[in-house]
């Protein structure tokens, strides 16, 4: 409240020497700035809005204006096995990759932030490495690597659940290390010291003090890991197999031929799922403070 009043006073003071003409010009400039910002905001939302809108169109061939509205394309999308199975597989892969990636990544972040040992920086770089390698390069290298390992060991990797999960863990580790490290760095150690002084052992201190304080970082890491895996296309493209396709790959294959309300319905399901996850997470952890 006071800051805002102060702000207004300051702005007033700054604007006071300006003549009426200059003030008008400044005000016009401010509105132009706002208008431009609004347009940019609208621009990044256009694709999302249109996907949601055309998924409800009556007619099968997308044209404007709509002839009416219906929900039958959602039924149609669900009836297509590639989308139903793709959705299921994507959920499965994203969940398992999230659990493994967040657990191992959080442990790594804990070691990097809390301990001093030679090569600490190198380990940090290594764990953030998957962010630097382009998805398509990581995907093709995993593809040739899986074929090599398959020939050596006689175990299938391409087109299997474990093959996909092992690849997708790469997407989750760097996000986890970044978000959990950030939350650990800002953590007040005095609280842990206090617990120890009050007689808590290292394990109790970790479980009752450190872990709850790491919670925001862990929740955010889980959310971003899950989404990164769920929506991934590039890394996944070559690792899927016949009958085992993730949702984004199934959508890409369909979109290479046509855009219609059915695929828009599939995309809308993804939009709603991710939006819901973000909103639910935001209830527990303020996302705007993390990203």
């Amino acid at each position: 409240m006071t800051t805002r009043a102060l702000e207004a006073a300051r702005n007033g003071a700054a604007a006071a020497p300006a003549t009426g003409h200059a003030r008008m010009k400044r005000r016009a400039g401010r509105w132009a700035l706002r208008g431009l910002a609004g347009l940019v905001f609208f621009f990044i939302f256009i694709p999302v809005i249109f996907v949601l809108w055309i998924s409800l169109f009556q007619q099968q061939i997308v044209s404007f204006p709509p002839e009416g509205y219906t929900l039958r394309w959602y039924e149609n999308a669900f009836a297509r096995s590639e989308f139903r199975h793709g959705f299921g597989l994507s959920l499965q892969v994203a969940f398992i990759a999230m659990v493994i990636g967040v657990t191992s990544g959080a442990a790594g972040a804990y070691a990097i932030v809390r301990f001093r040992f030679p090569g600490r920086e190198a380990f940090n770089t290594l764990l953030l490495g998957p962010l630097v390698v382009p998805g398509i390069v990581a995907g093709t290298s995993l593809y040739v690597y899986y074929i090599m390992v398959e020939n050596l060991l006689d175990v299938d990797f391409r087109g299997t659940l474990h093959g996909l999960v092992l690849g997708h863990i790469l997407l989750t580790i760097p996000w986890t290390v970044r978000l959990v490290s950030a939350s650990l760095v800002g953590l007040d150690r005095a609280v842990e010291e206090a617990a120890m002084n009050l007689g808590a052992g290292p394990w109790t201190t970790f479980r009752r003090i450190t872990l709850p304080m790491m919670r925001p970082g862990l929740v955010a890491a889980s959310l971003f890991s899950f989404i990164q895996s769920f929506e991934n296309l590039e890394l996944t493209l070559l690792l899927v197999g016949p009958g085992r396709t993730t949702l984004p790959v199934a959508m890409l294959n369909y979109l290479e031929f046509r855009i219609d309300p059915t695929i828009a319905a599939v995309a809308s399901v993804q939009i709603v799922l991710i939006g819901a996850l973000m909103l639910i997470t935001d209830r527990f952890v303020k996302l705007s403070r993390i990203v």
Partner: peptide, 8 residues
Amino acid sequence: VGNVVRAA
């Protein structure tokens, strides 16, 4: 929401 959805 992913690149594929936005391309659509």
